[in-house]
Simulated scan of single mutants.
Amino acid sequence: MRVNVQDVMTREPITVPTTMPFKQVASTLADNKISAVPVLDAAGDVAGVISEADLLRKEEFRELYYRECYESPSRIRNDRAPGFDARRKAQALTAADLMTSPAVTIRPDTSVVRAVRVMDEQRVKRLLVVDDEGRLAGVISRSDLLRLFVRDDRDLAGEILEEVLKPAKWITTDALTVAAEEGVVTLAGHTPTRSEAELAVRMTQRVNGVVAVVDRLGWEDDDLSPRRTR
């Protein structure tokens, strides 16, 4: 069963306007115990995103400038020299100065598998979810994706049997049982053919929330054997 971004994203996320002062942005993150916040412009469109790292730029460069006052310039390593974007954020007064723009976005109907790939490719911990008109629909973070692996075992086993295996007309489930413990799914029983048993395992492995599959299936006819007489 495919799970899309809209199935696990945080809806109606907290946002800040581009004009919000630095201190209020910091308070918004701290008071709501969140690590990032979307920034909206005057029209309500996504302008960017601010993370804790963006806010901490100011403290990072406060320390750097302090060292520059007391150390010889020759002792300041080149790799500590701030870039333009980092300096801008360090001197930020409002959300517009702080934010990273454009923000990395994704559509609600995108699969969570694709969302994980985008996060990895873009090296971000969260994605802003936008609708067809480009309006903010939600936010999906790594913690949201982790929810897929903390599903109730009984619900997981029931979904696999009732919504994945039984609807598949090419798999006979009359003598097949599904059990789950800590996300590890055990398929047991018999199927008429070996191909059905192997297909059942592959389909189960694709279900979100499955940690591993234990194959205890038997079959009556080894229809995959090259020695089978046809």
Rank of each mutant, 00 (worst) to 15 (best):
V104C: 09
R154C: 04
T28M: 08
M203A: 09
S225D: 13
T204W: 04
P38F: 08
A95T: 10
E71M: 15
I76G: 01
V213D: 02
L128C: 02
V211H: 04
M203D: 03
D144S: 07
N78I: 11
G218R: 12
S141D: 03
T18G: 10
A137V: 00
K125Q: 10
G44M: 07
R107M: 07
D31Q: 10
S101W: 04
T100W: 12
A137T: 12
A179C: 08
W170D: 14
V184C: 02
V139H: 05
A212P: 02
I171S: 07
A157I: 01
A137K: 08
R142Y: 08
Y66H: 15
V129Q: 10
D155I: 02
R87P: 02
P17I: 00
A81K: 14
S74T: 08
R57S: 15
L161M: 14
R206G: 08
R123F: 15
A115V: 09
R126W: 02
V150Q: 15
T105L: 11
S51E: 04
A179L: 01
E163G: 06
L146G: 04
A103Q: 04
V112S: 00
G183N: 07
R80P: 12
A188I: 01
L64Q: 07
G158N: 13
I106E: 03
N32E: 02
S143L: 13
